[in-house]
Simulated assay, not measured.
Amino acid sequence: MKFIQHFILGIKSYWKAIHFIQKHKLYWFLPIPALLMLLIYYVGSQFAHWQSDWSANEGCLVCTNMNETIWFLLKLLLSISIGLILMKFAKYIVVVLLSPMLSVISQIVEKKLTSNTYPFSLQQTMHDVKRGVRIAMRNVMYEYIFFLLILIVSAVGWEEVHHSPFFYLTFAIGFFYYGFSFIDYVNERRRLDIDQSIHFIRRHRGLAIAIGSVYSIFILVPVDLGKMLSFEGFLDNPFTIMGTVLFQFLMWMLASIAPILTIVAATIAMDDLVDLSRNEHALREIDDISDIKQ
């Protein structure tokens, strides 16, 4: 029963987050992940383009011995890996790189909700960033371990992996770990260590899955920035090309605003759940908290 209550709380927090962003003009943060994602994708596409030209034109025809062949294969593997990581996982990299900003936004939201303030400390800021990256990498590792296990079980029992009912568990697992990453920003300010945060989120997994599910839907939309930036054949089919460009632009914007919207929603949900105004580790301004929360 609590799972459902917590799940509904997480979903409702997104509606609150949209109004909160508008009311407090936090939309100025939205272009940052959009531009960062575009930059990462561009670098990745350049790597992929360079690799395809290099391998197609040169190949290993110039290799004269085993050492040159090995170096060629390592170079090929490295270039392909970098290109795929930057192009296919740009949305994940953005979240890690945005960790400092997401921490700041979460504090801003909490201050406006509760009047809580946290004195600036470079040492604490660096600790927060390291913790955020550590949590993100931990969650990615666990998510992919579970993914591989489910994939193996599905491959053994079914001819088509995606026909296995177990395969769809990968989505729920991803939802949980994404939600975990965003909720942990608040738990850190509550001075919960990582083990305590893990225990807390397991007891409120409905909230984590709700927060992570909406975020996943936003970032998993099929964005092709190459098509968004390409106007080839525009004179021949202007409406088709513009329709494709606008559709990809909309998908790109949804993926770009996801980190900001989610950190706001996660902070609001945590305030509704545990009442962050009671956080004994925060300083408080002399404001009427009941008025702020209205």
Rank of each mutant, 00 (worst) to 15 (best):
M242C: 02
I260S: 08
L254I: 11
P31E: 08
V186Q: 13
A56H: 13
H204M: 03
I8N: 11
V62K: 07
L97E: 04
Y118D: 10
W54R: 04
T117S: 09
V95K: 12
I260Y: 13
S55P: 06
K12T: 00
S256V: 01
D288E: 12
D195H: 08
G179I: 03
L225F: 10
S230G: 01
G10Y: 07
D288C: 06
K91L: 00
I183T: 11
L254R: 10
R191L: 05
F120P: 00
I105K: 10
V214R: 08
D236K: 12
A258E: 08
R203W: 05
L36I: 02
V156Q: 04
D275C: 05
I183A: 12
I268F: 04
L36A: 08
Q5V: 00
F239N: 09
I260G: 06
A172R: 02
L283C: 05
L229D: 02
F200D: 13
I145F: 14
F120C: 02
F72A: 10
Y142H: 09
C63H: 08
W158I: 03
F182E: 02
A282C: 03
E188V: 03
F171D: 01
G226R: 06
D184I: 00
G233D: 05
L229C: 04
I292T: 10
F175C: 15
L98H: 14
V109C: 07
S230D: 14
V156R: 11
D291S: 14
F218R: 06
F29K: 13
M126H: 05
C60D: 14
V245M: 05
Q107K: 14
S115M: 02
Q5L: 10
V223T: 13
M37I: 06
S213Q: 07
Q248A: 03
G132E: 14
V245I: 15
W15K: 09
V96G: 13
I40D: 05
F166P: 02
I217M: 13
W50P: 05
S197E: 09
L38V: 05
N279Q: 07
I194F: 15
G132N: 13
G226E: 06
A90H: 12
N279G: 04
V133K: 00
W252H: 12
D184C: 02
A255L: 03
G132S: 15
Q294T: 11
E280N: 10
L86D: 07
I241Q: 05
L283P: 00
L148C: 09
Q294M: 11
S55Y: 12
S13A: 15
I21E: 04
L61N: 09
F89C: 12
S99C: 13
F47M: 14
D128P: 00
Y168P: 04
M101F: 15
G132T: 04
P119H: 11
E285H: 09
I219L: 03
F147P: 06
F200R: 00
I18A: 07
Q248W: 07
P31Y: 12
I150Y: 11
S213E: 02
H24I: 14
M1S: 10
I82Y: 01
G179H: 11
S213T: 03
L235G: 00
S52R: 03
R134W: 14
L26T: 14
L207Q: 09
F147G: 09
N139F: 03
S52F: 10
M66I: 02
F166R: 03
E58K: 06
D291G: 08
T244G: 01
